[in-house]
Structure formats: structure tokens, C-alpha cells
């Protein structure tokens, strides 16, 4: 299997804060890759680096064997890297459907002049975008919230709509930043099911950050444990649970 994303000796520094310290790992195609670690360990920084929102201070990141140094976040998105955010970053003044349609942005192809005239091509492309969105809505079972404004929806549903928006991009890699944060057991189970479906049915490589150890251990195929910006461990989730360093830093003695 080939690598989708590889980190080569990546360091990230904000003034005096070392967010990442010489981190290297590879994410294989079709894996369900989990990043775990205590707060401030640099997990979200890793996602932001993949995404191009942060640029590494040193080292390089390859996405689909392409150096991401000169790529903007939108270029990286157009390579097929999609994501959700830790604190929901939905567009609040729009309906759920419009949010998901924005997710399908890269599949819609026309310029501003065509848009002003709403030409035949626009109508076709809009219909295409709508079909992509409807597929995702169907997949995540959020039909009833289609026309609801984001602010009027409960937290759990907002999380799911953000996942829908990310999926409407039809990505090759999906980055999920704490998809189960703040959810009860039932909602966590739902989300875990959807993540597995995304991974298995749609064949998307998933990179997952979460603090819910039961869920991560259950569904992940690979795991990286971070602590203070350094990689502690990489490998099988079951082995991670037995690793003494991981237990000391994060899992604790149960």
C-alpha cells in the first residue's frame, strides 16, 4: 500500500512554544489512522499542518507524493483532503443544505459571468452539486435538517452536518478533529458507525483525533500517540494500550 500523507521530521514553532518536535510518520492509503494524546500534545497542529493552515517551521509534509510547502489550504483541499474542525466551523447564516453544497464546491465548475447569467451549464452543474449533496445527506441520515439554519440545530446534529460538508467534497482523505467530543454514548456510537461506514463503504482514508479511548481503540487500524509535540508511539492500537510510555503520558493506570 502506498502512503497518502507522510511527515518527514516536521517541527512547528510559535514563538517560544514548540508545537511539534521532529515528528515523522506515514499514513497509509485506506487506513483509519488515529492521533491521540493529552491536551496540548500537538494533535490539532498535525491536522492544521496537513491542511496547510500552518506551515511547518522545518521538515516537510508530502501529500499524495507532492511536497505541500507551496500549497495553499484550498490547493490541498482540491487534492482531495477534507476536514472537520474541533469547534464546529459551519457557516451559521446558511441552511444545512447550503453548507453541504459548499462542501461540493470543487465539483462545480463555472465562472462568475456564467453565474450572473445562470446559463444552462450553471443549471446542470448546480444539479450535479445537489445530487452529490443529497447522496451525502442520505448517507448520514440528516434529511429532516436539510432546510434548517445551523444555529437552530442541536450540537450533535451540527457535528454530523460538518461531517456531511466534508464528505460532499468527495475526498480521498478525511481529517476528523474530535468528531465525538461533547457527545453522549449513543451519539458517539452513531458517529463511530458513520466513521466506519465512511472508511469501509466509501473507501476514504480517515485521520481521526479523539479523546474517547473506547471508540479509538475499537475502530482505528493505526494509532500515533503524541505528547508535548513529540511522537511517543506509532502502531497497532492494542499495542499502544499496553505500551508503558503511553500509559504514563496519557492513558493512566486504570
Amino acid at each position: 500500500m502506498s502512503n497518502v500523507i507522510s511527515f518527514n521530521d516536521v517541527s512547528l514553532r510559535f514563538g517560544g512554544v514548540q508545537a511539534l518536535k521532529n515528528v515523522s510518520f506515514e499514513i497509509e492509503e485506506n487506513s483509519l489512522f488515529a492521533i491521540i494524546g493529552p491536551n496540548g500534545a500537538g494533535k490539532t497542529s498535525i491536522l492544521n499542518c496537513i491542511n496547510g493552515i500552518y506551515k511547518p517551521t522545518s521538515g516537510s509534509i508530502n501529500i499524495f507524493d507532492q511536497d505541500s510547502k507551496d500549497l495553499h489550504p484550498d490547493n490541498i483541499a482540491n487534492l482531495g483532503v477534507s476536514r472537520t474542525f474541533q469547534n464546529i466551523e459551519l457557516f451559521e447564516n446558511m441552511t444545512a443544505l447550503d453548507n453541504i453544497l459548499i462542501g461540493a464546491h470543487r465539483h462545480v465548475d463555472y465562472g462568475p459571468v456564467r453565474s450572473l447569467l445562470f446559463s444552462k451549464k450553471v443549471r446542470q452543474e448546480e444539479e450535479k452539486a445537489r445530487k452529490i449533496s443529497e447522496d451525502v445527506i442520505d448517507f448520514l441520515e440528516i434529511e429532516e435538517y436539510r432546510y434548517s439554519y445551523i444555529l437552530s440545530l442541536p450540537y450533535g446534529i451540527q457535528k454530523r452536518i460538518e461531517l456531511a460538508r466534508a464528505l460532499a467534497m468527495q475526498p480521498k482523505v478525511l481529517l476528523l478533529d474530535e468528531p465525538a467530543a461533547g457527545m453522549n454514548n449513543e451519539e458517539t456510537e452513531d458517529i463511530a458507525r458513520f466513521i466506519l461506514d465512511v472508511h469501509e463503504e466509501l473507501g476514504i482514508t480517515v485521520v481521526l483525533i479523539d479523546h474517547d479511548m473506547n471508540m479509538v481503540m475499537d475502530i482505528a487500524t493505526d494509532v500515533v500517540v503524541m505528547d508535548f509535540g513529540e511522537k511517543l508511539f506509532q502502531g497497532d492500537p492494542q499495542e499502544a494500550a499496553k505500551n508503558q510510555k503511553v500509559i504514563d503520558a496519557y492513558l493512566g493506570v486504570g
Binding site: 493552515i53 474542525f85 466551523e89 457557516f91 464546491h105 463555472y110 452543474e125
Partner: peptide, 21 residues
């Protein structure tokens, strides 16, 4: 159309908009 949606996305959350391509 797409252009208007992209405008609104930039208005509401530009970082998320960029991450969506």
C-alpha cells in the same frame, strides 16, 4: 449559485472556506 455560496462562506468563516477548496 456556487459563487454566492462561496462569498457567504468567506464572510462567515474564511479558514473553513479555504479548507473546503
Amino acid at each position: 449559485s456556487k459563487i454566492g455560496r462561496a462569498f457567504s462562506a468567506i464572510r462567515d468563516r474564511d479558514i473553513a472556506a479555504e479548507a473546503l477548496g
